[in-house]
Design a protein around this nucleic acid. Structure first.
Lengths: 346, 346
DNA sequence: CTCCTTCGTCGAACCGGTTCGAACACGAGC
DNA sequence: GCTCGTGTTCGAACCGGTTCGACGAAGGAG
């Protein structure tokens, strides 16, 4: 059931079948019909490997995602789903590549063995070997997040600095004076994860601007760590009345910690941060947060990559997203503050 | 940078390079060293498409997963991660294939175009076209879950009947007499989703065995649906004191509904079900549940598939898993029951 | 009635690997 | 000295597509 078989049964040559399918040269209506009929009868579909070998395109994009050792967050899941869906719309398949401990191995598989036409990289670091590597090779890639020197890169990212700052201002407007920042795990921060660093920056600067008293914490990507982290926060400064978090997976634990400590949200304590909307809604009270637009990001990343694949010499493009804060139910006025400034207008 | 180039620079023929790499025929130590040296210098890696074309194996497995329109659950995420990791250990890549509305299209891509050597199918239905189709074609596949007639199939599944029954018995032992079952969304039930059906079966039978008063509900895969569902439960029968759920994504909403209704968990109301452990720990109080061993399932599925690929004529194998209930904090004795039977021993 | 296009088709080469059969050199056995 | 087996290497065919150059037939212009 290969192209030769189709050609034989249709009484034409292999090349004619190929042209009939691709439309790259004209084929008479009659032979086209005959060929199509044979194809339908036999249910023929051209072999992907052979096609890839012949024309140098695999019609596959690689999605380089964090190792399973780390826990995945809901945002990542939504993102993967939307990438697959968007890629399918452009007739691309998606190959998953774990960028684990020996990330090199699977990375080499993807690139050097030409399994994919291009790649989307998740969990970017400020200094990222992979990005440098791909840049040198001029390999078509799109980053989710941006490195410290992202000028020549294609990327779609979240403006964590601005988002976290917006959270801080929101809390300050509500009169909170002593707030904590719950970041991603320490090893990710040390490894230079972009979101962790820029988020921390945004927090520090905005808090300084508003003259707030702050503490910052790293926290494991799971509920128990969140609970422990919250205990530390209240232990270190019992007067803390609010927190900002980037750590979606720890959210449930933070809430539990508050509940165990007898702090009612939002009456006694406000919580906000940067979290995918769907997950902000799973906690009670629902989280007031900057909703990570995971689906949009996946779609945009694929669009950029396809554009780059179609136009190899296009100038680098990017999208920096800064979704607004969705007001839900987890923040409220600081009621026992010493220096209560009135909130803006809600 | 193809095999011919390597051969030229090493002063041997292409076939000798191939044999040096594959080890399928002996090559003298001297030429092997020479070839290896050239390869290292140039950083050569054989082209995956060409290799796939020549030897008929893509070293890729397909993961057919539910469409993004449905919300993903945490369990699916863990599962995907473990599949990728396990596949990498066997030197396989993982190609994602959405089985969406026109599942046929991407399905055809995978199989007819020979993009993958085998496939893992998620979200199996009791009557599943895809499985029938693959079975007829004798295509190497492993199902996550089992169809109604799974005799000739390879699968790894959860014994939802037994797990849900165990939940019911656990509640009955605690003295609960009026309990509700929160299932997956109605369209999935109608479509014949295995877990939804077998779970419901297990619930119905165990409840009948224990003489319980029950109601069953379908519930959307998101928190707001969970909240609405819980309102309906208490509206339909305010004397309900416990529920069992399969719906991981609705869990947060169910909890919120209880909190809004002023029912304290576990004092006034017990909650249990079948949920991935990591997600059972994000809610407060932590969920007593049969922990879905998503990682183990992913690993086992890959192992089965690799075995099937290596031994095309092996007899079908499967794994039916029934993890024990992890006692956490969401269930307790029914305190206001009319017919309170004492719990077993805790 | 020629000459020149245009259309439709074919054969051959190519993509980059794998694999089979054969050839050659060499040493052992008779 | 001749035969035979073994170790090493090469050339050619093949996997299943795509694409280029050429060629014959049909049709229009001169």
């Amino acid at each position: 059931m290969n192209i030769g078989e189709i050609a034989k049964r249709a009484g034409v040559s292999r090349s004619t079948v190929s042209y009939a399918l691709s439309g790259k040269r004209s084929v008479s209506e009659e032979t086209r019909r005959k060929i199509q009929q044979v194809i339908d009868e036999l249910g023929y579909r051209p072999n992907a490997s052979a096609r890839a070998l012949a024309n140098g395109r695999t019609s596959t994009i690689g999605l380089v995602f964090p190792p399973a050792g780390n826990h995945y967050t809901g945002m990542q899941l939504d993102f993967i789903g939307s990438v697959v869906e968007a890629a399918a719309a452009y007739d691309y398949d998606v190959l998953l590549s774990p960028s684990g401990v020996d990330s090199d191995r699977s990375f080499q598989r993807l690139l050097a063995e030409r399994r994919v036409d291009g790649a989307i990289l998740m969990e970017i670091r400020l200094q990222d070997d992979r990005v440098d590597h791909l840049g040198e090779a001029n390999f078509p890639a799109v980053c989710i997040g941006r490195t410290a020197s992202s000028d020549g890169d294609w990327w779609v990212g979240l403006d964590h600095t601005a988002l976290v700052a917006a959270c801080v201002h929101h809390l300050a407007d509500l009169g909170h004076r002593r707030i904590a920042f719950v970041n991603r795990p320490e090893h990710l921060l040390r490894a230079g994860y972009e979101s962790a660093h820029r988020g921390l920056d945004g927090f520090t600067k905005a808090a300084a601007e508003r003259g707030l008293t702050t503490r910052t914490y790293c926290c494991g990507d799971d509920a128990p760590s969140g609970q422990t982290c919250l205990e530390r926060i209240l232990h270190d400064d019992p007067a803390t009345t609010a927190l900002v978090t980037l750590n979606e997976a720890a959210l449930g634990g933070l809430y539990r910690g508050l509940s165990v400590a007898g702090r009612h949200v939002p009456r006694d304590f406000s919580v906000t941060g940067v979290v995918a909307g769907r997950w902000a809604e799973t906690v009670t009270p629902q989280l007031t947060a900057a909703d990570v637009p995971a689906e949009q990001m996946g779609r945009l990343a694929v669009e950029l990559l396809v554009e780059r694949l179609d136009h190899p010499d296009a100038t680098p493009r990017h999208h920096l997203l800064a979704p607004p804060i969705s007001l839900r139910a987890s923040t409220g006025p600081a009621h026992a503050g010493t220096d209560l400034r009135s909130g803006s207008d809600d």
